[in-house]
Write a protein that binds this DNA or RNA. Structure first.
Lengths: 336, 336
DNA sequence: ATTAGCACTGACAAAAATAGAGTGCTAAAT
DNA sequence: ATTTAGCACTCTATTTTTGTCAGTGCTAAT
């Protein structure tokens, strides 16, 4: 692609991002110091190459997915954060009382607020967490709460009703046994080892071993299946974007943003790199009409993914700028 | 109001609920075995009394808020659950492994799915929970997680970074002290007693008392402010209702359904009774264009509120029928 | 290679025409 | 004293018509 064509593509993408209206040839004459006809010729060329599209035969051009892609990879310059935005984020990270992972969550909420895009924070899927401790705390004669804690500091709990006459001391015994034998086991293997190692032992020693076994079994399987580690904010924010001026489009997306199983896909998305990654349209695996910008971190040994969901014509410069800033702050805090 | 007028109002409300179109006089001739003119006269009368409204001078009638109100209080007969609906709910409650409060949450999710309304489950606001136990579990040299458990089985946890050289044994000492002194304290008074009773003691005995004091203080204040005890499902479901065929209306409601502070209002709503309560339009304190049907329970000593949010012309019969059924199942389980 | 010029396209908005459902009122019928 | 048929009228909703305009592609001249 020639230099002028690159500049033209850049100008078209940026104009379209601002105006949300197909870009016509006249609009760019001044910038390129040539007539609209010249621009039209170049546009036709860019269209042939697949970087631009038209809504109908006589409309202005809009960038195609390929066009956006080329733009973010080759043409865009990440924007420096403006003072206002920076200030808001700074105050969050400056607060050292705040746990880093909470700071990140808060910060993504703010970004959603500032930009009118939806933001997501995905905690790691507890896969590489290991059992640190299980406590079984009696609430009253017929209820106990089991509290499981992992080495990464994840805690889950579940309340159980006891059958009449369950012996609390037996419960305590089993809990001690589990703590002695299974600490350090990856959390999603605990169930298995419970079955293979613990069950045979308690089967002999404990009277109501079935009830008690179930309590432990359930407490762990719940842990693995839990998705509480997902924060979505500004689900409704993205609807402020002009592309969602249409009821069906809104409904379609609103449903997806409700579905946590779907949201999880953002994390699993293709490649695992930890730089800022931009997925446009089909590539997102989430929705063909959105762009997702995401970044992965490892904090205290745990993976965390943050992502912004916006329309395909999202303000790439600003978002990348923001995420870069967040990145720097996190590095900064991690260095401490 | 005369008998025929009551019947007419009932018919109009029920027709409107089904068709979502203003009800004209002809449509009801057959049912009332009289001419449209007679119906019109009666309609005019009902309108004078404030039970009906018109969109414009020559349109059919729609029920006013007062009309709906009168309907649900005097005219409606709760519907018997149809077999399909009942079956779905039954399987949830039949599963005795499932904790009752989880069963309720699941069941409200299903109801949202079945009816295309939004459902909400609000746990009690932890006000009358009392401290049962706090554990401070070390994760590694520089991090601990504090786990607070109340007598009602609520568990919250928070991770803290320790300053260089914090003495873990001192932490354990304080945690023992808190467990000895403050168990049984209402959870929202713990902070205060921490300040008044614990601080003076540790101030003398503990070197890094400030850091350690903060850990406990923060762990409790987080507990009180937490809203994790809210489940909203089918936020997007309500948009399937034909009244949300308009982008602005959708956005307005989507924003409210995102805002947990707003959702909480459903619980605090005026009177505290524990029967099925129907709030229509303005009465909801949530949104003038919706109806909220809610029911409060006390389960294991904790208040729980379930609610359905739908349009003002929601299918009252079905929802009340469903909630009655849920009610019966809960009573059934509580009785065990 | 660039540009002026021109015919042409399709979206969009405003205006006009049409159909239809429903009302209120009056006067006659029961 | 109700009830009803009949009629003029109102308003909505839909379709049709018309005009405007931004933008294009192509050709021929620069």
């Amino acid at each position: 692609m020639e230099e002028r064509q690159k500049n033209l593509l850049k100008a078209i993408v940026e104009t379209y991002i601002k105006t949300v209206k197909p870009v016509g040839s006249k609009a760019l004459c001044a910038k390129f110091k040539c007539s609209s006809a010249t621009i039209r010729n170049e546009m036709a060329h860019l269209e042939e190459l697949g970087y631009l599209e038209k809504n109908h035969i006589s409309s202005g051009r809009i960038p195609s997915e390929k066009g956006y892609k080329y733009y973010v990879e080759n043409l865009m310059e990440a924007e420096k954060l403006n003072g206002k935005d920076m200030l808001k984020l700074q105050t969050i990270f400056a607060n050292n009382e705040l746990q880093l992972s909470d700071a990140i969550t808060q910060c993504m909420e703010i970004i959603s607020e500032m930009t009118n895009y939806t933001s997501v924070v995905l905690g790691s899927s507890s896969g590489d967490n290991m059992l640190l401790q299980i406590n079984v705390i009696p609430l009253n004669a017929s209820q106990v709460v089991a509290v499981v804690c992992t080495d990464k500091g994840h805690v889950e709990n579940k309340t159980f009703n006891l059958k009449e006459g369950t012996d609390l001391s037996e419960l305590a015994k089993v809990s001690e046994l589990v703590n002695k034998r299974l600490v350090g086991t990856p959390i999603n293997e605990v169930s298995e080892r419970l079955e293979l190692e613990i069950k045979p032992i308690i089967q002999k020693q404990i009277k109501q071993y079935e009830t008690i076994y179930h309590i432990f079994y359930d407490a762990f399987s719940d842990f693995v299946n839990n998705n509480s580690n997902i924060h979505v904010s500004g689900r409704a924010k993205i609807f402020e974007q002009p592309e969602y001026n249409n009821v069906d489009e809104m409904k379609r997306l609103a449903n997806k943003l409700e579905d946590m199983a779907f949201i999880k896909k953002i994390e699993h998305s293709s490649d695992p790199g930890d730089e800022v990654k931009i997925y446009i349209g089909e590539e997102t695996e989430f929705d063909p009409n959105v762009t997702i910008i995401r970044k992965k971190y490892t904090i205290d040994g745990e993976e965390k993914t943050i992502a912004i969901i916006g329309p395909k014509r999202m303000d790439y410069q600003r978002i990348v700028g923001l995420l870069n800033y967040v990145d720097a702050e996190i590095d900064n805090r991690k260095g401490e």
